[in-house]
Design a protein around this nucleic acid. Structure first.
Lengths: 148, 148
DNA sequence: TTCCTGTTTAGAATGAGTCAAAATCTCAGC
DNA sequence: GCTGAGATTTTGACTCATTCTAAACAGGAA
């Protein structure tokens, strides 16, 4: 539950927000720290509950606002699986997601550039893709450890 | 709005349903025909409206039921994009989806076996994937024609 | 201070989807 | 052709993630 989030991580927040003309507020800091502290793809509700430990007055709407802001300035990615609640992920490296049928956990799967390339190459001319989402669904061996 | 859907298509329905011990009903036929008639990844609401032209008494819940049944017996795939309404797709060949930012249309993108293979290969040992969903998001040149 | 703008808050509203229970259908067995 | 069991459909109520609205708040420029 580290208090030792590197300054570097928080400076990302600072930088990304000011890049898009927005302010660093206590709420945004708190929410961002929650995302960095446990990278388990929490839902809004989970973020809300964790964040309230540090900031009891925080409102759910604000958590929605913060997360939307982060997504908007590229700090965080949304992860959707079927119709379940949206989850949030501060891993900015290109990666796919694997959703475990049994546990519901979401795992990051590293996406090598050549695979990304071959994916891009299947688009016929005229299709200009900004984002690609890849999600696997199945069972993962209980390789425990932090629910990545 | 072709009445000439091949017998073959409808026999798929027949076969897939009885394979899982379920009945062919007028409602299911109607809904299935709607999916085949215009392969534009309709939402439940769109299916509902189209189906009611042929069967005015049809209820929304039944459309949900039918589509769930079809997905369950592998006749149809669900397509989710972000938090938008679920769409349905009778194309069973392996393919990705491209969602046009501007029009909202969803296009099927053919997925060659070798690309599918290279995707599978990025899974670390212990990850056993049953389904893969790939979705692109961006702009598509107005290569008009039926909103594939 | 005062104003302005962006942010946060609480609560109401939305809307896709699900559920429960009654009505209806189908069809095997008589 | 009837009967009864099981599947299917219907209606309407319900859930719940998310969005919206309007009022309070914060903090910097004038």
């Amino acid at each position: 539950m580290s208090q030792n989030l590197s300054e570097l991580d928080l400076s990302h927040l600072q930088e990304a927000l000011s890049r898009s003309g927005q302010k660093v507020t206590p709420q945004r800091e708190t929410v961002f720290k929650v995302l960095l502290a446990k990278r388990d793809h929490p839902t809004v509700d989970e973020v809300f509950n964790r964040a309230r430990e540090a900031m009891p007055g925080l409102s759910l709407a604000t958590v929605y606002n913060c997360l939307e802001t982060f997504v908007g300035c590229g700090l965080v990615r949304q992860v959707n699986h079927e119709r379940e609640s949206t989850r949030y992920c501060p891993n900015l490296a290109p990666h796919a997601h694997f959703r475990d049928k049994e546990t519901g956990r979401v795992h990051d799967i590293d996406l090598p550039p050549e695979v990304l390339g071959s994916l891009r190459s299947i688009l016929p001319p005229g299709f200009d893709s900004e984002t690609i989402e890849i999600s696997f669904h199945g069972r993962a061996q209980a390789k425990d450890g932090p629910a990545s």
